[in-house]
Deep mutational scan, measured.
Amino acid sequence: MAAAAAAGAGPEMVRGQVFDVGPRYTNLSYIGEGAYGMVCSAYDNVNKVRVAIKKISPFEHQTYCQRTLREIKILLRFRHENIIGINDIIRAPTIEQMKDVYIVQDLMETDLYKLLKTQHLSNDHICYFLYQILRGLKYIHSANVLHRDLKPSNLLLNTTCDLKICDFGLARVADPDHDHTGFLTEYVATRWYRAPEIMLNSKGYTKSIDIWSVGCILAEMLSNRPIFPGKHYLDQLNHILGILGSPSQEDLNCIINLKARNYLLSLPHKNKVPWNRLFPNADSKALDLLDKMLTFNPHKRIEVEQALAHPYLEQYYDPSDEPIAEAPFKFDMELDDLPKEKLKELIFEETARFQPGYRS
């Protein structure tokens, strides 16, 4: 834990890192770190609560700039109880001085990944967590956004079992017609939660990839272990087919990539493993919904509104309290091709509203 900075004593240090967030945020305490930044909790002297502050230093890398800009653009436009918001952003007053960006968010005690390492969940908890994931996802999908990296560590939890989806750095506007060349190379989302079509096709992607990830998360809540822990690309596919069985001819016809289709045709026939054999203690309604989410063919996979209306979630289902976005989200430009200098300018502009004396 960093010592509390005395008023006016300059930035606090946390594990050798400068955290320049005073005077409003003090009493910093280390939480963890990701690929390009550290997260601390801090005391907000204005709202009198502890908050989470993520320090991001992305400006050396085009990919990190892209992810940072995506996350900020999306989260500043989203407003939903099951999606983490941005409360404040701290950065230098000029673009030349801006080396880091500090993002202030609600402090959540833990995440689903940490929880599943230590606790076996009751059916009631599984049901409530799944409902909140789908409630947040309904809003995301209504904005025409794909999260693309749903996994237990991106689901934040607090002691009252509130759940918030975080990390929109890989999110995209849904565009089933656009052929994202190089899709697989830039697709760094965790393999275990990846839909089979991501490994088999490169053309376009749809909201059904997020539903697949939610199915993987439900299976993990039922058993405290990942359902498809593939060691590499082909191993991942083999794990999936080992449980779902061989795809039907109709399902194979959806695979545009001939090499991928021929690979699947070359494999020995596998039978589907019954879900109640894998999860003998699970609620039968939970397994019915799991089956509809972990469907090989993305066109037959359940959609988020149908999933919310499934009998497993009937005690929570309330369409009048499951809000959607006001308007579909649009990125003005494809960020993939922009140089990091341009992305830095866009991050600077996007964060201006939090600067003292800002006038829109």
Rank of each mutant, 00 (worst) to 15 (best):
A2S: 13
G10Q: 06
P11F: 01
M13N: 11
V18I: 13
V21D: 06
G22V: 15
N27F: 07
N27S: 00
L28C: 04
G32Y: 02
Y36R: 15
G37D: 15
Y43W: 15
Y43I: 08
D44K: 09
V46T: 04
V51G: 14
I53C: 00
I56H: 15
S57H: 13
S57N: 09
F59H: 10
T68I: 12
L69G: 09
I74A: 04
I74R: 09
R79D: 07
N82K: 12
N82H: 10
N82Q: 12
I86K: 05
T94W: 09
I95A: 03
Q97F: 14
Q97K: 15
D106E: 15
M108H: 01
E109Q: 02
T110W: 14
L115F: 01
K117R: 01
T118L: 08
L121A: 01
Y128H: 01
Y131M: 11
I133L: 13
L134H: 02
K138N: 15
N144H: 04
N144Y: 15
N144A: 02
V145C: 05
V145H: 02
H147A: 05
R148C: 05
D149K: 04
P152G: 00
L155P: 08
L157K: 03
T159M: 05
L163I: 04
L163D: 00
K164C: 01
V173K: 04
V173D: 07
D175M: 10
D177V: 14
T181Y: 07
E186N: 02
V188T: 08
R191W: 08
W192L: 15
W192C: 15
Y193S: 11
D210Y: 14
E220Q: 02
P226A: 09
P229V: 02
P229I: 01
K231W: 01
N238W: 12
H239E: 08
I243Q: 04
S246C: 14
P247K: 03
S248I: 00
Q249S: 01
Q249R: 00
N253A: 07
N253S: 10
C254V: 07
N257A: 07
L258R: 00
A260F: 03
A260Y: 01
Y263C: 00
P274W: 08
P274H: 10
F279V: 13
F279I: 15
A286D: 13
L287E: 06
D288M: 01
L289A: 04
T295A: 00
K300H: 08
E303V: 13
E305W: 01
A307Q: 01
P311V: 00
Y312A: 02
L313M: 15
E314T: 02
D321Q: 02
E322Q: 04
E322L: 08
F329G: 01
D337F: 09
D337R: 07
L338I: 07
E341N: 05
K342N: 15
K342D: 04
K344D: 12
L346Q: 14
I347N: 14
F348Y: 13
E350M: 03
R353I: 15
F354W: 03
